[in-house]
């Protein structure tokens, strides 16, 4: 196997407890730049907690998180987002009053002056307008551009959420069960989109229950069980790891 690229995201010994219960205990993992990394594990293994800790929704009880060498631990969620981490949610969280188009504008970084933010948003020829248009085309959302996002079918809502995350121009994209509720065709289409994003150099970390999807897509996989990392490696290595088989057989998957 070729040499691993430098890690973009590093977790060092991250622990998070809730009232004495360890949701994550001593998890260390590296997410390689430009690769797709999967996180799997039975229900309640701590996968979503891991995402919440990375994005700053929870601060770790112990341990450190670095993005490209810069310490993220203790930063506020919006600061972590601005540092280059975007995410989607297991139970889709769209803005209920907004159209698809508005979703693609709102997450874009705005580095301009205060007055710039007071100008009308998303005019066709502005930079923001062009970026939004690009995301619209990439996810094939042109037809629903002005529809309220929450009225769209489930699979389309997932795409809007992903498009919103991408318009923030992240270095690392976190996807929490991206194909949950999607049809087989939609999942396949998404797999190709993610592979295109990887080819463009985006780093992706995803949680997914669908093993075929994970095994076909991910370059590396980390396995959590009861808040601990029990295995990690290539899909082939993980598939045959006795500890993994144990955890999954025990949890009837």
């Amino acid at each position: 196997m070729s040499t691993m690229p430098a890690p973009l995201l590093s977790l060092v010994d991250v622990t998070r407890t809730f009232g004495g219960v360890q949701a994550l205990s001593g998890v260390s993992l590296d997410v390689a730049a430009g690769r797709i990394t999967g996180v799997i594990g039975p229900n309640g293994a701590g996968k979503t907690t891991l995402f919440n800790v990375i994005t700053g929704a929870y601060t770790p009880t112990a341990g450190e998180i670095y993005l490209d060498g810069a310490r993220l631990t203790g930063l506020k969620p919006y600061q972590i987002a601005r540092a280059g981490i975007a995410r989607t949610f297991q139970n889709i969280r769209l803005f209920s009053s907004m159209s698809v188009w508005e979703h693609l504008l709102v997450a874009q970084r705005h580095d301009g002056s205060v007055f710039g933010r007071l100008l009308p948003a998303g005019l066709a020829r502005s930079k923001a307008g062009r970026e939004a248009e690009k995301a619209l085309v990439f996810f094939g959302l042109e037809k629903v551009r002005d529809r309220p996002a929450r009225e769209l079918p489930y699979g389309t809502q997932r795409k809007v959420e992903m498009a919103r995350a991408l318009t923030a121009n992240p270095r690392l994209l976190l996807l929490d069960e991206p194909i949950a509720g999607m049809s087989h065709e939609e999942a396949d289409e998404l797999r190709h989109l993610l592979m295109r994003l990887r080819a463009d150099g985006l780093t992706i970390l995803l949680i997914e229950h669908d093993m075929t999807f994970v095994m076909n897509l991910c370059d590396r996989i980390h396995v959590l069980d009861f808040g601990r990392q029990i295995a990690h490696g290539t899909p082939e290595a993980v598939r045959t790891d006795p500890a993994v088989l144990d955890a999954y057989l025990g949890a009837d998957t």
């Binding site: 994005t55 929704a57 506020k76 969620p77 919006y78 987002a81 601005r82 975007a86 995410r87 949610f89 969280r93 769209l94 803005f95 209920s96 009053s97 907004m98 508005e102 504008l105 709102v106 997450a107 970084r109 705005h110 710039g116 933010r117 007071l118 100008l119 948003a121 998303g122 923001a128 919103r164 995350a165 923030a168």
Partner: peptide
């Protein structure tokens, strides 16, 4: 653009902070 941020905060504060 500012009002979009205001609406995002209104609709879902957590999601708004997680998009930066």
């Amino acid at each position: 653009r500012l009002w979009l941020e205001i609406r995002a905060t209104h609709d879902d504060e957590t999601a708004a902070s997680l998009v930066g």
